[in-house]
Design a protein around this nucleic acid. Structure first.
Length: 128
DNA sequence: ATAATGACATGTT
DNA sequence: TAACATGCCATTA
């Protein structure tokens, strides 16, 4: 069972310590370039199994912590966790994507089992 | 089955 | 620049 949810988890887990990834990126690496919103949905509904899912490394495309506050997580905690990893997040919950965006290598992308042409598309989109 | 609800992204005003 | 509108699709009710 390689459900959407499991893929989301796998991709988010690939985001390294001290880096962040956008919802759109996660969706794109899933092979669903317009599924950003669904990624957020999954994270919102998934209870954080301690240490298994680095949900705090997912932000929106402009570097803003767009989480509104849910039963499991909240914006302030996310900021705290990111800061603890060395990511500089401003008081208004904004961080510079140009500095912290996770840019997977080609090999890492292959791990997600995507077609060659699609990989090329991702490269132009996120300038890997 | 159908409709409503989002931790989004992008294009247009 | 910032606000608004629209497309998106997994999940729930």
């Amino acid at each position: 069972m390689t459900s959407f949810k499991e893929k989301v988890i796998a991709i988010v887990q690939s985001a390294p310590y001290g880096k962040v990834v956008s919802y759109g990126q996660v969706a794109a690496y899933l092979g669903m370039p317009r599924g950003a919103r669904q990624v957020g949905w999954i994270l919102n509904a998934t209870e954080n199994s301690p240490g298994l899912l680095p949900w705090w490394r997912v932000v929106n495309n402009v570097g803003y912590l767009s989480i509104r506050g849910t039963k499991y997580h909240d914006k302030k905690l996310q900021r705290k966790l990111l800061v603890s990893e060395g990511v500089k997040v401003s008081e208004d919950f904004l961080l510079p994507m140009s500095v912290y965006r996770y840019r997977p290598s080609i090999d890492e992308l292959k791990k997600f089992q995507l077609g060659k042409e699609y990989v090329d598309f991702l490269i132009t989109k996120y300038r890997l």
